[in-house]
């Protein structure tokens, strides 16, 4: 008789996927904004799974052809793996495309564990954004309490390894030269930082980087960066914090 456990097994597990929240049904504008976002972290977005959130659009009665949207997302390199907040027509299209449908839970509840939505620290800069990835909507509705998560990593990040956190990122071990750490929020390294560290990768200009010993190859906040060439001009003793001021990275020793 066949021993079933040697063939397969079901395990419950969580899976990370960013959520794309749409506020506008203009396909050209969506495509343009997506390209701009992808350029901020091309490696991260390449072949990334994606969940599409249409609640806001449907609340505003803006219609959108889900099949066209899916084609667009695949063209720019995403793999749509879920829809939520779609109307009947959109859900039907999703089913035809074999994309699972998530029933909308209460506002702010995480759709996938490990990807808890995080409130903006900074108000969105320009006018009404067209899209945002894994960020809460700018919605006048009362904001329910949401958990602010952080990602904790305790093992060393070695050359060639990459870590991405959709939250704050806290690392207690060293980050080697040739390693890359990225976070949508702040980055804390309670050790030597020798690799590349990019905070606020979705454009959060108030994100900061903190580290015990700064020997980085590159530091970046919301796309503004300094390389080791700039950094080597000065030596820092002890812990530092790095933040943005008028598009310039400021590095300050923490007394």
């Amino acid at each position: 008789m066949l021993n079933t456990s040697s063939v397969l097994e079901f395990k419950s597990s969580t899976f990370f996927a960013p959520i794309l929240i749409l506020f506008n049904n203009d396909m050209a504008a969506i495509e343009e904004t997506l390209h701009a976002k992808i350029n901020l972290a091309p490696e991260f977005f390449r072949d990334s799974p994606l969940i599409i959130d249409l609640r806001d659009l449907n609340k505003q009665n803006q219609d959108l052809d889900f099949t066209h949207l899916t084609q667009l997302l695949r063209r720019v390199g995403f793999f749509p793996v879920g829809i939520r907040g779609g109307n009947d027509q959109q859900n039907k299209q999703a089913r035809a495309l074999s994309i699972p449908i998530d029933t909308v839970r209460e506002q702010g509840a995480p759709i996938i564990a490990g990807n808890v939505q995080k409130p903006e620290m900074n108000p969105q800069p320009s006018s009404q954004p067209v899209t945002t990835v894994a960020k809460p909507s700018v919605n006048p509705a009362p904001i329910p309490p949401v958990a602010v998560t952080s990602t904790l990593v305790t093992q060393p990040i070695r050359s060639g390894q990459r870590i991405y956190a959709s939250s704050d990122l806290i690392i207690t071990s060293q980050v080697s030269a040739g390693a890359e750490i990225m976070a949508e929020g702040n980055i804390h390294v309670y050790n030597t930082l020798r690799g590349r560290a990019l905070a606020g990768v979705h454009g959060n200009t108030s994100a900061r980087i903190f580290c015990f010993d700064l020997q980085a190859e590159l530091i970046s906040i919301a796309g503004d960066y300094k390389t080791s060439e700039d950094l080597n001009k000065q030596t820092y003793h002890g812990p530092v914090q790095i933040y943005l001021q008028d598009h310039a990275l400021i590095i300050k020793e923490i007394a």
Partner: peptide
């Protein structure tokens, strides 16, 4: 040393 560091990353992943 650099290559060993790289190898350690592969060992752990």
């Amino acid at each position: 040393v650099r290559d060993s560091d790289r190898m350690l990353g592969i060992l752990s992943s």
